[in-house]
Structure formats: structure tokens, C-alpha cells
Amino acid sequence: MKETEGFKEAHERMRPGHITAQGFLGADGRPLADIVARDEGEFRRLGLTFEGVAAELRRLRDEGRRGLGEPITVGGAVVTVGDARGLLPCPWDDGTFHKDSVAVERGGTRIVYSDLSIHMLERHHFCQGEGSAFRLDPGALKRVVG
């Protein structure tokens, strides 16, 4: 995939210290377009769709909110929804999102995401870099929501 100017700018804003202190890339040194292309391939291989996964992540978040900040069981998964102060802009500069963190654990696999993670996954097919605390690894997504 070609690294467009928009991708280059977003990639820059994903580095530590721009939008969040730890950034969105983890230890991943690949170009952003390569990260996205690789995860798109994994989604296809696993039979996942970005829209379908995003909808399921939203549903788990909404159901998990009934736990009022404490862990709660939602259809066999343990979901904890926490909140932090403030808003985060998307690195692609197309919206701001409440700083929350949703942890979902099912069968020994755990994923952590925020409203911004769902947006980046759905709109930009970006699962975050390898090693990012909020990376939505396609394999883990398949096990948790697939």
C-alpha cells in the first residue's frame, strides 16, 4: 500500500508525546501503510470485517458499562469499562473521542480498547502497532469477538 501524505502525517502524530504519552505504535517500526495492509490481510484470512468487529466492540463496551467501573460478565467474557479525564483526537484528525478503556477477557485472551481504538479500526483499518498497549491484534479479536 502506498504511504500517502495523510498517512505520513497521521504516522507522525502517532509517535509518543504527540496525542498520548505512549503513542499508538508500540515498538513497531514499519511504515503505517504496511501495518494497515498486514492487518487487513489478517482480517480477510480470519473472515473478520472491520465494521462487524467494531460493532461487537461497541456492544461489549455498552454492556460492560452496567458494571459501573467494576468487572462484569457479558456472554462469557469479563468486561471492565474504565474512564479517564479528557478527550483524544484521532491521528487522522477526523474526530475527538472520550478517553475510556475497555478490557475484555475471554478464554485467557485479553484485549484493551477505547472509543478512539474502535474509530481507528472501523474508519482507518488501523489496529495499532505491535507492542502498543491498546493494539487490537486480529488473532486476539477473532478469539474474543469473532
Binding site: I19, A84, R85, G86, L87, P89
Partner: peptide
């Protein structure tokens, strides 16, 4: 301030 002056907490 919760974000160290990044303009991301609004505090």
C-alpha cells in the same frame, strides 16, 4: 492538569 499541558485532558 492531567496531561502535562498537551491539551488533551481539559482540566
Amino acid at each position: 492538569s492531567a496531561c502535562g499541558g498537551r491539551g488533551s485532558c481539559g482540566a
